[in-house]
């Protein structure tokens, strides 16, 4: 028996909107720790890892570990039927091949339940080791989204370089080139508007902008985004989900032949 009651139902709606274009089908894993997902895109270039910790739910009952295969497009269709202020409860019985999403309006005058068919998904769970990164950049998520969108109108790839001067996003395409440098900026009053660059050593990596743009669909989840770079690892683009956990996107770099 599984019953997860999320008062801020809009968080789940936003999570779905941020992953449904990257991943088609995925297993949602439910354990005492929380509600989580790990999935790769169909070409195995990007990976998404989501964690919504059990403490973040108003009510969290998960009698035994359960993995529920869902088509994310179908799940998104159902969650779109929930109001932004609705409380969402996810329910499933042991051994059932369906999951139920219950939506309650804040005033309790409207209660809806949507039952969705589950599916068997063969997916490999990858071990993601703890790592030291050469550089970690924290910046406003809207700024990062703007940069990715702007650069993708010029080129297909972005070179992200971190030096002591700042973080540089560069692209080139048929019509020309573009470079955007963001410097560390901690003087602003609001911490979520600051740009913080922690650099152990300079790093420069090339990534497909198509994926970066897809990751920025998570922008509504957090004011800040953290970009962790290492020359030996996929980049990690992380959006913290207030009080609950995170959504992390991993993207393998492009390497010169």
């Amino acid at each position: 028996m599984l019953e997860l009651r999320l008062v801020q139902g809009s968080l789940l709606k936003k999570v779905l909107e941020s992953v449904k274009d990257l991943v088609t089908d995925a297993n949602f894993d439910c354990s005492a720790t929380g509600f989580s997902l790990q999935a790769m895109d169909s070409s195995h270039v990007a990976l998404v890892a989501l964690l919504l910790r059990s403490e973040g739910f108003e009510h969290y009952r998960c009698d035994r570990n359960l993995s529920m295969g869902m088509n994310l497009n179908n799940m998104s269709k159902m969650l779109k039927c929930a109001g932004n202020d609705d409380i969402i409860t996810i329910k499933a019985d042991d051994g059932s091949d369906t999951v139920t999403f219950m939506f309650e309006s804040p005033t309790q005058d409207k209660i809806a339940d949507f039952e969705m068919k589950l599916m068997d998904i063969d997916s490999e769970h990858l071990g993601i080791p703890e790592a030291e990164y050469h550089a970690i950049v924290r910046m406003p998520s809207a700024e990062f989204a703007r940069i990715c969108k702007d650069l993708s109108s010029i080129g297909d790839t972005v070179v992200i370089s971190v030096t002591k001067e700042g973080v540089k996003f560069s692209t080139r395409g048929d019509i020309g080139t573009a470079n955007i440098v963001c410097r560390q900026n901690t003087s602003v009053d609001k911490p979520e508007e600051s740009t913080i660059i922690e650099m152990n050593e300079p790093v420069s990596l090339t990534f497909a902008l198509r994926y970066m743009n897809s990751f920025t669909k998570a922008t509504p989840l957090a004011n800040s985004v953290t970009i962790s770079l290492s020359s030996e690892l996929p980049v990690v683009v992380e959006y913290k989900i207030a009080e609950m956990g995170y959504i992390r996107f991993y993207l393998a770099p492009k390497i010169e032949d």
């Binding site: 270039v45 490999e124 991993y250 032949d257």
Partner: peptide, 14 residues
């Protein structure tokens, strides 16, 4: 020419 790497060449099942 830049070659796209795959996630599975960095992380292994486990």
């Amino acid at each position: 020419v830049n070659q796209q790497r795959q996630i599975t060449s960095f992380f292994t099942p486990g």
